[in-house]
Simulated scan of single mutants.
Amino acid sequence: MLASIQDDPPILVCADLQVEYLTPGRRHVILDGDAATLRGLELLALWRTNLWPVMHLKRIAQAAWFNPASKLTDWIVEAKPKPGEMTFEHPLPSAYSSARFVDYMSNIRNVRCVVIGFSLDETILATAVDGFHRSHRYQVVADAVACRQPGTGEAAAYKQSVVNVIGNFATIQSSAELIRASGAVAV
């Protein structure tokens, strides 16, 4: 089914676009974060230009490696939420661990979300699975998401494996396909 993006735009979900993931030397640094950030910012600009709905997710974990008082949990400057954009903080990997998020999503009649951002192997995966079980539709933009370097193995193969798993619960699409759709988005 095709829905007009102009008439009924999906929500752009910006997952964990925080400084922590791009700071060299940090345990959870994302090595290919620049490319994913660039694609994500292009989509964010498209949504903002057209005044389509944007939602920001921010992981506020209690683990020692993710200190909420640190400046490292701040938003990436270019992706910082603007007035009128929704923000949800979540303590566990899934955004559904936020009661406010659950309440908001349960009150939307036709839930369709396009997901960009970091923590592909945590927040994005967990949220897509939780959303799937609630009949919420998610699209993950494969070239606008990234995950941390795995302990062993190649990062690109690890990311592709995670994307393949998410494909069981969400639609996978590229940013070029999404932008090129020019008026229609597959849902």
Rank of each mutant, 00 (worst) to 15 (best):
H56S: 10
W75R: 13
A63D: 11
A45I: 09
T73V: 15
K82A: 14
G84C: 08
P53F: 03
H56N: 11
L92T: 02
Q62L: 12
L51G: 05
I76H: 04
R59N: 14
T73L: 13
W75F: 14
G84Y: 10
A63V: 10
E89K: 12
W65V: 05
V77G: 10
Y96K: 00
H56G: 08
L57P: 01
V77M: 09
E78N: 03
K80P: 08
S94C: 01
W75G: 12
L51W: 01
S98L: 12
A45K: 13
L51Y: 06
P68N: 03
L57W: 01
P81V: 09
A64I: 10
S97H: 13
M55W: 07
P53H: 02
I60N: 08
E78C: 00
S97N: 13
F66P: 00
P93E: 10
S98P: 13
W75P: 15
H90G: 05
P53N: 03
P81H: 06
D74W: 05
Q62P: 01
P53K: 04
W52R: 09
A79M: 10
I60S: 12
T73Y: 07
A45F: 08
M55F: 04
A64R: 15
S97F: 12
H56M: 10
K80W: 06
F66E: 14
R59M: 07
A79S: 15
W75N: 13
E78S: 08
S70G: 12
K80V: 08
T87F: 00
L92N: 07
